[in-house]
Design a protein around this nucleic acid. Sequence first.
DNA 1: GCTCCTATTGCAAGAGGTTGCAATAGCAAC
DNA 2: GTTGCTATTGCAACCTCTTGCAATAGGAGC
Lengths: 151, 151
Amino acid sequence: MARNGSPPDQVAAVRDQLRARGLRWTPQRRTVLEVLAETQGHVTGAELIERCRARDPATIPSTVYRTLDVLEEIGLLRHGHGPDGREEFHVGPEPEHGHLHCAGCGASWELGSDEAAALMTAFEDSHGFAVDLSHLTVVGRCRDCRTANAP
Amino acid sequence: MARNGSPPDQVAAVRDQLRARGLRWTPQRRTVLEVLAETQGHVTGAELIERCRARDPATIPSTVYRTLDVLEEIGLLRHGHGPDGREEFHVGPEPEHGHLHCAGCGASWELGSDEAAALMTAFEDSHGFAVDLSHLTVVGRCRDCRTANAP
DNA sequence: GCTCCTATTGCAAGAGGTTGCAATAGCAAC
DNA sequence: GTTGCTATTGCAACCTCTTGCAATAGGAGC
């Protein structure tokens, strides 16, 4: 389960980052951090709250969302919006990446870093626009759904 | 205000499309249609409801959303999700298009059709994936915000 | 004009998320 | 160990959107 170093280490590191910014270390934040430490990839806000409640039934949603805001500010995670507009959090050291979502079968893939780079370069050149990949979800229909639908 | 033909014409055309599908023409749908007829570009669900209420204070949100679903089904409009995940409707005969949204200043632009085409072709080639442009919002930072922030 | 079938409405409840505010509790300094 | 400042919390209310269900009302057929 642990990736590199024990989970307590990661949590302690975040605690220090918070303190260094004059922010505070509270039991509620510890709970959120612990949940995140054993989470990889994408989670929705609702899932996160549910898992926090499993650890501490007294968890309040607004506290979780506010903690997530703080963690995003210090760069520990990023949020985006899934195909249905619901909030989705991307945890951990994985590089930011976009998503491809099929409206037909509901499957989703991560965008390869080469494609992502091409996309970013394109917008950079044409608009001077810096794309935030973690916020990018491309919705459409995958090959399978297209062939199934229009032979 | 009127685009081509008088607004009543557009509304009547929709009425006939609905009837042709065995669907019904109701005062509530007429209200929504009238509001849409004088709307161009992007609207959020909430805005639409507000405008419907201006015409008919008895308007109920669920009715509006359900009407919008129906209208989307017959191809009269498309919905997507704005940068904050809120629903956004794109009205009228304009071709589908993606959006660029600056997280810094909140501005947003439409994607040029050439860029959009390039993007679609790219995903088509690499994944056989058909992008739904109307659902595409690219979030990032525009040239101005970038230069303002990192000189 | 009247009937009947059923699409649609209105309502109420619920899910996911946000916000304002008074009370609480970190933690730094003494 | 106390004190005091203020970041956080918990709560309650609110917003946007969805869903289930009984009651209503289009409109096709007679």
